[in-house]
Simulated scan of single mutants.
Amino acid sequence: MVTLYWAEDGAVPPGDRGLAYGDGLFETIRVDGGNAGLKAYHLDRMTRDAARLRIPVDRAELERILEQALMRYTGQYPADSWVLKLTLTRGSGGRGYRPAPELQPNLLVSHTALPPLPPATGVVADFSRVPLTVNPLLSGIKSLNRLEQVMAASELQDGVFEVLMANAQGHIVEGTRTNLFIETDQGWRTPASDTIAVTGVMRRYVLERLRASAEQVYEAPVLLEDMLASSCRGVYLTNSVLGVVPVRTLAGQDLPVTGRLATICGSTPTTE
Rank of each mutant, 00 (worst) to 15 (best):
G10V: 00
A11G: 14
D16H: 08
G18A: 10
D23Y: 08
G24E: 07
L25M: 15
F26N: 08
E27F: 00
T28W: 03
R30K: 08
R30W: 04
R30M: 02
R30N: 04
D32K: 09
G33P: 04
G37Q: 03
L38E: 10
L38I: 10
A40M: 09
H42L: 05
D44V: 03
D49M: 00
R52N: 08
R52L: 12
L53E: 05
P56M: 02
P56R: 15
D58L: 09
L66C: 04
E67L: 06
E67A: 05
A69H: 01
L70N: 01
Y73T: 00
Q76A: 14
Q76G: 11
Y77H: 13
P78H: 10
D80R: 08
V83M: 01
L84H: 00
K85W: 01
L86P: 02
G91P: 10
A100T: 07
Q104P: 09
P105G: 08
V109W: 03
H111F: 05
P115C: 05
P118S: 04
V123H: 02
F127V: 06
R129D: 13
V130A: 06
P131R: 10
L138Y: 15
L138P: 00
K142M: 02
R146P: 06
L147S: 10
L147T: 15
V150W: 15
S154H: 14
E155S: 07
L156Q: 12
Q157L: 08
Q157H: 10
Q157A: 13
Q157Y: 07
N167P: 07
E174A: 02
G175Y: 07
T176E: 13
T178F: 07
T178V: 09
L180V: 05
P191L: 03
A192D: 13
S193H: 14
S193Y: 09
I196A: 04
A197Q: 07
G200L: 02
E208D: 11
E208F: 01
S213Y: 00
A220W: 08
A220P: 05
D226A: 02
M227C: 06
A229G: 10
S230E: 15
V235C: 07
T238Y: 04
L242A: 13
L242C: 07
L242T: 06
V244C: 00
R248P: 04
A251H: 11
Q253E: 12
V257P: 07
L261A: 03
S267N: 13
T271D: 13
T271H: 10
E272I: 12
